[in-house]
């Protein structure tokens, strides 16, 4: 259907106003909200993700697409309340204790939401206990931690340790990222995974919840 293709295309061009307007038009034309979501918005976001992976577009384009996706989803949300917005799982994210850099963490949050995850953003300078308490309380499947300073990276190890101490290792996975963080560091502290950038972090989270 043209309207659904137009919705997908509005994501590809990063036009949030058009995404919202075409979403309303599709609903007015009698298209089921779930179909608008799956065959319009999600399809558009998948196309954007594929182009990003192929290095045809860059992060600013993906963020514009995510904004357009959210514009459409906000319209659909009340209509999908009965069946519930589909979620790929809940993820708790935050910048670790001592660190106030939150751009990377914010981008991961935006892209996770765009990819269909529920995100609990604890903000920055988050003590280790808060990550674990939030994951327990929210029933999160993944804890995502960001650090931009080598001096704050040890806080990630404390979160991983707490997850183990509380016996959550089987149900809550941990993933780390940030400029000084590496796959070796993630292995060293026993984190379940490492995301080398915001987009990769979303892929890795998807892989963690699929395990």
């Amino acid at each position: 259907m043209d309207l659904l293709r137009e919705i997908a295309s509005s994501l590809e061009t990063g036009d949030d106003e058009r995404a919202a307007e075409r979403t309303r038009a599709a609903l007015a034309a009698g298209v089921a909200p779930r179909v608008v979501l799956d065959e319009g918005l999600v399809r558009g976001m998948e196309a954007v993700g594929a182009r990003f992976k192929a290095h045809e577009i860059f992060l600013p384009d993906v963020l514009l697409a995510a904004k357009a996706m959210i514009a459409g989803v906000e319209i659909l949300k009340p209509l999908l309340e009965g069946e519930g917005m589909p979620s790929r799982g809940k993820v708790v994210i935050g910048t670790v204790k001592g660190d106030l850099h939150d751009i990377g963490k914010n981008l991961v949050g935006v892209l996770l939401r765009g990819a269909g995850f529920d995100v609990v953003d604890l903000g920055r300078d988050v003590p280790p206990e808060r990550f674990v308490e939030a994951a327990e309380r929210e029933g999160a499947r993944v804890i995502g931690m960001s650090a931009l300073l080598t001096t704050t990276m040890p806080a990630m190890a404390r979160v991983v340790g707490l997850v183990r101490e509380r016996g959550l290792g089987g149900s809550v996975r941990t993933i780390v990222g940030g400029a000084p963080v590496s796959a070796d560091f993630a292995r060293e502290i026993g984190a379940d995974d490492y995301g080398y950038d915001a987009a990769n972090a979303v892929e890795r989270v998807a892989a963690l919840v699929a395990r």
């Binding site: 992060l59 600013p60 914010n106």
Partner: peptide, 9 residues
């Protein structure tokens, strides 16, 4: 406020 593309840039 949801203006994250502009915030990022």
């Amino acid at each position: 406020t949801g203006e994250f593309p502009l915030g990022y840039l």
